[in-house]
Design a protein around this nucleic acid. Structure first.
Length: 611
DNA sequence: CTAGGGTTAG
C-alpha cells in the first residue's frame, strides 16, 4: 500500500511532461518551496500558506513541513502546531519540527507532551533528530526521571548514537546534576568522535555543579589535543564562569587572553561572563572596563554590573546604574531587581530596599517572588530589625527549597544579633524544610545549649546522627601569586591557633582605637560558652574566614595582595572593616563574595601545606 | 529540497 503511494508520487513528474497544467503546478511548487525556506516575514509566510492551500498542496507533506518550519522560525509555534494538526500524513520531520519549535519558544513541557503523543500514535517512529530535541527539552526542565526513561527508549530503539544525540545527553545529565552519568556518556563517545560542542557540554556540566577544577582540567585536555578545534565563544564563556566560581583571577586572565586571540570580545555572552568573573575575583575596576567596552547593552549586561557593584558594597552606584538602565528603556527583570535589593542589603540602604520591594510590581512590572522577600528579610536581619524580618518571613508562602533559603537568612540574623528565640524558630522551620541543612541542627543545638536546655541540645544531636545528617567541613581560602591556600574550620585547633587569636584580638583593639564600631564577622571574637567539644567545633566553623584572613595577613609578605575568597555575607560594616584592616596592616585586601552554595571542594592544598 | 546539539546575570 505504502509502496504504491510512493510510486504514484514518483510518477507525477512523468505525467507533468505531458500535462501543461501539471508542469505549471510543479514550477509553482518549486517557487513556493524556495520562498518558504527563506521567508523571514510573517506576511510573506501567510501569503505562501494561502498559496499552499489554493494549489491543493496541503496534502503534500514536504511542502507543509517547510510551512511549519517557516512558522517556527517566526516564533509562531501555535500556528505551526495548527498547521501540523491539519496534516493528513505527518512524517518524522513534521513531528520533530514542532517539538523543537516548542523548545525554541521556551515551552519544553509542551515539547515533551508532543513527543508523548507521537509515541502513542505509533504511526511514525522517532529518529535521532527527534531524540536530540527531546533530550534538550528534558535538559531545560532538569527532568532526570523522564530523561532517563527516554534515554532507555533510545537505547532499545536500534538507532545508532551519534555526536549530536550524545552531546544532548551529556548536556541533559549535566543540567540534571548527574555529572557522573554525563561523564559516562562523554567517555562512551570515543567511538564516533567528539566535537567542540560535546566538550563544551561536559565542561559546563562540571562548571555548573561546583566542580570548577574538573572543568578547567577538561578544558586543558581539550587544548592539549592537536586534532580538535580551537575553543569557541560557548566554551570560553563556560570556562570563564568556572574561573569565577573558583575565584582564580589568574586563570580568568588567561581565558581573557584566549577570548582576545579568538576575536570573541564583542560577544555579549562572553563579555558578561568576563565582567562577572572580574567582579567575583575582586577586581571591580576590570569588571567596569569590560562593562564600558560593551557596545550593545541588554538587561543582562546591566544586571551583571549592578550585581558586581552590589557585591562590592557600592549600593548607591548600583542604584544609579539601575536608573540609567531604566532611562535607556531597558526593561528590568526579576534578576535585576534581586540585584538592586542585594545592593540595598549590602550597603545598609534599608528604607530604599523596602521602597523597591513595595513598588517594583507597579513601577517595573516585576512581581516580587520568594527570592526577593528572602533578600529583604536578609537585609532587615543584618541591620538588626530582626522582628520585622521575622514578621515578613512568616507571611511568605514558600516551597521547601525556597523555604530553606528564607529561614536560613533569618537564622543568620538571629545568630548575628544573639536572638535565641529567633534562632530556635528559624532552625525548626529549616529542619522542617528537609533540605539537608546541617547548619540548622547545629544552630538549634547551640541555641538550646546557650539557653541552658542541655537535654534538648543532646537529643537534637542524637537526632542529627540518626538522620545521617553529616556535617560538612566549612572552609575558606586565600590566593597569593597564583597559589591557593585552603583553611578548614577544624584547623583552628592546630598549634598556631594561639598566635591567630592574639593577632585577631590585637587587630580588633586597634580598629576600636580608630573608631570602628559594630560587629563585623571578621573582628568579632567567637563567644565560647560552656559547651561540649563538638558544639565548639561547630561554632569554629562559622569563623574559618577569620582564620584565612589572619593567616594571609600575618604570613604573606608586606605589600602583597591578600585575596580572600569565602562565603562571607558581606555588609557595609565588613567593607569598612576591611578598609581599616588594609590600612593597619598595610596590605591590599581584596575580598570576594562567592555564592554560598558553591562550596570549594577540591582544595589543592590545605592549611598544613602553607607552612 | 525539508529536521537535531553547546554559552551569560541571581
Amino acid at each position: 500500500m505504502k509502496k504504491r503511494l510512493i510510486q504514484n508520487v514518483r510518477l507525477a513528474p512523468a505525467n507533468a511532461i505531458t500535462s501543461p497544467f501539471l508542469l505549471l503546478h510543479l514550477k509553482t511548487k518549486a517557487f513556493l518551496v524556495h520562498k518558504l525556506s527563506e521567508s523571514t516575514n510573517p506576511i510573506l509566510t501567510n501569503l505562501l500558506h494561502t498559496l499552499t492551500v489554493k494549489l491543493g498542496l496541503v496534502s503534500d507533506t514536504f511542502t507543509v513541513n517547510l510551512l511549519i518550519n517557516s512558522y517556527v522560525k517566526l516564533r509562531e509555534v501555535n500556528t505551526a502546531r495548527k498547521v501540523f494538526g491539519e496534516m493528513c500524513q505527518p512524517n518524522v520531520v513534521s513531528w520533530t519540527s514542532v517539538i523543537s519549535g516548542f523548545n525554541d519558544m521556551g515551552q519544553p513541557q509542551t515539547a515533551l507532551s508532543m513527543f508523548q503523543k507521537m509515541h502513542e500514535d505509533r504511526s511514525v517512529p522517532p529518529n535521532e533528530y527527534t531524540f536530540a530535541s527531546v533530550f534538550k527539552a528534558c535538559s531545560s526542565l532538569a527532568e532526570s526521571r523522564i530523561g532517563k526513561c527516554i534515554h532507555a527508549r533510545f537505547e532499545i530503539s536500534r538507532l545508532r548514537s551519534n555526536t549530536v544525540v550524545s552531546s544532548s545527553l551529556v548536556d541533559m545529565y549535566g543540567k540534571c546534576n548527574d555529572v557522573e552519568t554525563a561523564r559516562r556518556v562523554f567517555d562512551s563517545m570515543i567511538g564516533y568522535g567528539r566535537n567542540v560542542v560535546s566538550w563544551t557540554s561536559m565542561i559546563t556540566a562540571y562548571a555548573q555543579s561546583g566542580r570548577g577544577h574538573e572543568a578547567i582540567e577538561l578544558f586543558r585536555s581539550f587544548n592539549a589535543s592537536t586534532t580538535l578545534d580551537r575553543p569557541n565563544q560557548f566554551m570560553l564563556a563556560s570556562v570563564i564562569s568556572a574561573c569565577s566560581s573558583l575565584g582564580r583571577l589568574k586563570w580568568g586572565e588567561v581565558a581573557h587572553g584566549l577570548v582576545t586571540r579568538g576575536g570573541y570580545e564583542s560577544n555579549n555572552v562572553v563579555a558578561t561572563s568576563l565582567l562577572d568573573m572580574y567582579a567575583k575575583c575582586g577586581s571591580l575596576s576590570c569588571a567596569e572596563k569590560v562593562f564600558l567596552s560593551i557596545r550593545c547593552h541588554s538587561v543582562i549586561t546591566y544586571t551583571s554590573m549592578i550585581m558586581a557593584k552590589a557585591k562590592h558594597g557600592l549600593g548607591e552606584a548600583a542604584i544609579k546604574l539601575f536608573d540609567e538602565m531604566v532611562g535607556k528603556r531597558i526593561k528590568p527583570n526579576y534578576v535585576t531587581l534581586l540585584g538592586v535589593l542585594h545592593a540595598c542589603s549590602h550597603s545598609g540602604l534599608v528604607n530604599e530596599g523596602l521602597e523597591f520591594l513595595n513598588s517594583m510590581a507597579e513601577k517595573h512590572g516585576v512581581i516580587p517572588d520568594p527570592r526577593h522577600y528572602t533578600c529583604v528579610v536578609d537585609m532587615l536581619g543584618r541591620c538588626g530589625r530582626v522582628d520585622e524580618a521575622y514578621d515578613l518571613a512568616k507571611t511568605i508562602q514558600v516551597g521547601a527549597e525556597q523555604g530553606a533559603l528564607l529561614w536560613g537568612a533569618l537564622l543568620s540574623a538571629g545568630r548575628l544579633h544573639g536572638r535565641v528565640e529567633i534562632v530556635c524558630e528559624a532552625s525548626k522551620r529549616l529542619i522542617q524544610s528537609d533540605q539537608q541543612v546541617t547548619s540548622a541542627y547545629i544552630a538549634l543545638s547551640n541555641a538550646y545549649a546557650v539557653a541552658g536546655g542541655w537535654e534538648d541540645s543532646e537529643s537534637l544531636r542524637l537526632e542529627m546522627k540518626r538522620s545521617g545528617n553529616v556535617k560538612e567541613r566549612a572552609c575558606s581560602w586565600i590566593e597569593s601569586k597564583g597559589s591557593v591556600y585552603v583553611f578548614h574550620a577544624g584547623d583552628l585547633s592546630c598549634d598556631e591557633s594561639g598566635e591567630i587569636e592574639r593577632f585577631l584580638k590585637d587587630l580588633e583593639k586597634r580598629m576600636k582605637e580608630r573608631g570602628h564600631r559594630g560587629s563585623s564577622m571578621i573582628t568579632s571574637s567567637s563567644v565560647f560558652v560552656d559547651v561540649d567539644e563538638e558544639a565548639k567545633e561547630a561554632m569554629v566553623n562559622l569563623h574559618c574566614e577569620r582564620l584565612a584572613l589572619a593567616y594571609g595577613l600575618i604570613y604573606l609578605p608586606a605589600g602583597s595582595t591578600v585575596r580572600i575568597m569565602n562565603n562571607l555575607r558581606m555588609c557595609r560594616d565588613c567593607h569598612e572593616a576591611f578598609k581599616l584592616i588594609s590600612e593597619i596592616v598595610q596590605r591590599e585586601i581584596v575580598v570576594r563574595d562567592v555564592n554560598r552554595f558553591h562550596c570549594f571542594k577540591n582544595g589543592s592544598c590545605t592549611c598544613r601545606d602553607f607552612w
